[in-house]
Design a protein around this nucleic acid. Sequence first.
DNA 1: TATTCGTTCGAACGTCCGTTCGAACGTAAT
DNA 2: ATTACGTTCGAACGGACGTTCGAACGAATA
Lengths: 216, 216
Amino acid sequence: MGSPVRNLKKTVTFETRGSQHRTPRYNKKLRKVLSASSALFARKGFERATIRDVSQATGMSLAGLYYYFRSKEELLFLIQFTTFESLCEKLKEIIENETDPQTCLHSMINMHFEYFIRNMNELKICSREIESLKGDFYRKVAEKRKKYFDLTQSIFEKISNKSGGSSAESRLAALYLFGTLNWIYQWYRTGRYPDAKELARQLTAIYLQGFPRKSK
Amino acid sequence: MGSPVRNLKKTVTFETRGSQHRTPRYNKKLRKVLSASSALFARKGFERATIRDVSQATGMSLAGLYYYFRSKEELLFLIQFTTFESLCEKLKEIIENETDPQTCLHSMINMHFEYFIRNMNELKICSREIESLKGDFYRKVAEKRKKYFDLTQSIFEKISNKSGGSSAESRLAALYLFGTLNWIYQWYRTGRYPDAKELARQLTAIYLQGFPRKSK
DNA sequence: TATTCGTTCGAACGTCCGTTCGAACGTAAT
DNA sequence: ATTACGTTCGAACGGACGTTCGAACGAATA
């Protein structure tokens, strides 16, 4: 029988939801492969990282790896898709449980910072390798990414509250914010900056009150 | 005699400043090669775009291209370096001529948006391919990039005016802003958004007053 | 016309990459 | 012990890529 990963593109019901599809051994090793790949894709970039790198990092043989995925592209897809899905779920929960729009924005930014710090490799790959996938892989990821974006935009809409409907301003604000969030991996280094909570506080303050000016 | 581009790494005096180094014909064709490369690197990414693509786009032969550069990496270097240098010069002039810090921030953001719209390929490459260069090439570009960043940070310092010295807040604000600016290429499409002036106005407003909230 | 030198090219070299194949291994059930 | 199946691997294929070489071209100079 082929690897169950092969069904990912068609069944939609593929997640590492528990471990229904395969033996625990299989699922454990798949996670190990994904983790090693994430580290390599993050450090070298998707194109420059090779399957041979993954082989060396995991101690598995070249051919042995292909038992866990069908192509290098699918490997990237799995990383990006599960990451965006995870972010979407967290954001959905925030929006559902927080009524005040401003606090909601703060929670969203804080969640993203914290998620970034705990999954730096994956988020770097989600920001930097957006255009590395093609066809169905690309579309599936773009869909999730759009969902994450739309949820964020809806927060800005509640803040500006132009009697419902999606305004151009809130769309732009969300795009600006996404730029900042997707750029974090370029400068953040562990231990050299305030923690996620503090970073989120400052960034939220900018979006709600602006950068603090001098008081004449 | 070898191509004068070979001296770029050592002489520092290499710019396409007029056309002192070579025949007008040479300089004209070099610009053509750089322009075609920019379009390809922007569309496909540096790794996926091949010298053969450049050959096809310019109508030149594979070997003929190497008369204008020594390696594919140098090609990327030339694009990034000249772009950042150009941005630095424009920003320096703004900072020297504008005394009000808030207006200065507005001018900087406006300049960047306008430069982006007129050089989308190059700016996309400067944002996305930061980690594609190594060694001296990387360092030279990083130096220019840092200059551009430091100039921007200095504007925030004047705005917050914590009696001189570089504050952590202004550094972070500059990083946040850079994220937004370096992300524009991901969403901006000609004709579908307000013009540069309007985009700059909105983004500046966020950084100075925050995103406009509803008035209760 | 002869010479020079900047410019162009066809053809190939060597390397590295993603992927595949069939055989073999290990483990748990029969 | 035998079977069945999930898992692993050595070895190789086919192709694409960056780069190079020596020869040839062409426009300006003498």
